[in-house]
Amino acid sequence: MTAAPVLALRGVSKRFGAVQALTDVELEIHAGEVVALVGDNGAGKSTLVKTIAGVHPIDDGVIEWEGAPVSITKPHDAQNLGIATVYQDLALCDNIDVVGNLFLGRELRRRGVLDEVEMERRARELLTTLSIRIPSVRIPIASLSGGQRQTVAIARSMLGEPQLVILDEPTAALGVEQTAQVLDLVERLRERGHAVILISHNMADVKAVADRVAVLRLGRNNGVFKVAETSQEEIISAITGATDNAVTRRAARTGEARK
C-alpha cells in the first residue's frame, strides 16, 4: 500500500453540545481494501461515518482525500469527491421499480424525456457486473426480499463510480443466505478497486470480508487490526475495553506513524 490512502482521517473530533462524540480519531483506507469499523453501541461508528458522508461536519482535525486535505461540510461535498454511503434504512422507494430506484435523482434523459430503455439496459449491465440476481428490473422494490433490496441499494451507490463506499450495517436485518449475497457483493467491490468501509456488529461478517478492523471505543481509536493476524477474541476485547494493553496501543501507534 504505497499509494496515498483514498481517505485518511487525522485527529478528527466531533462534539454534540456537551457530548464529545469523537476524539482524535485516526483512520486510513486504501483503494481495494475493506476496512471494518466496529465498536459497541454509542462508540461513535455512525457519527464517524456521518462526518465522512458530510452529514455532520467535523469540529477538529483533517480529512484527507488521496493525500490532500479536503473540507466536507455537506453530503454533496462527499458525493462529489466520490464517496457513496448506503445507510441502514436503505432509502429506496417501494412503489418504483428497480430501474427507477437505481437512477433516482440522476435519471437519464433523451431529448428531455426519460430514457427508460437506456436506463434499463445500464441497470441490467450494472447488476450483471456485480452478479446481483433479482427476478426482474421492472418490478417494484416492494416485491424484493430484504437481501435483494440491500444489494439494489448498494448497486445504486455504485452508479456514480465512487472510490469509497460506506456500508452502514448492511447485514443487520438479513438472513443467512441474504447476508452471504451482500458479503459476496462487498468482495466484488473490493476486487473492482473500490475502498469499502463496512460497519458491522457481526464478527463473523467482519472476519469473512474485511482486510483490517478499526475499533472505536467511547469515541476514540481503540486499535486497528489486520484481520488475518488477529483472533476474534482480541477484537472483541478491544471493543469492550477488556484489554487496553500495550499491544493494542502499539498497533494504534504504528498505524499513526505511517502517515
Binding site: P75, A91, L114
Partner: peptide, 16 residues
C-alpha cells in the same frame, strides 16, 4: 418520476 418518488418515500427522495 420525482412526484412518484415522493409518494413512495420522502426520505429516499431527499437523499436522492
Amino acid at each position: 418520476r420525482k412526484v412518484f418518488a415522493l409518494g413512495g418515500s420522502v426520505e429516499a427522495s431527499r437523499r436522492a
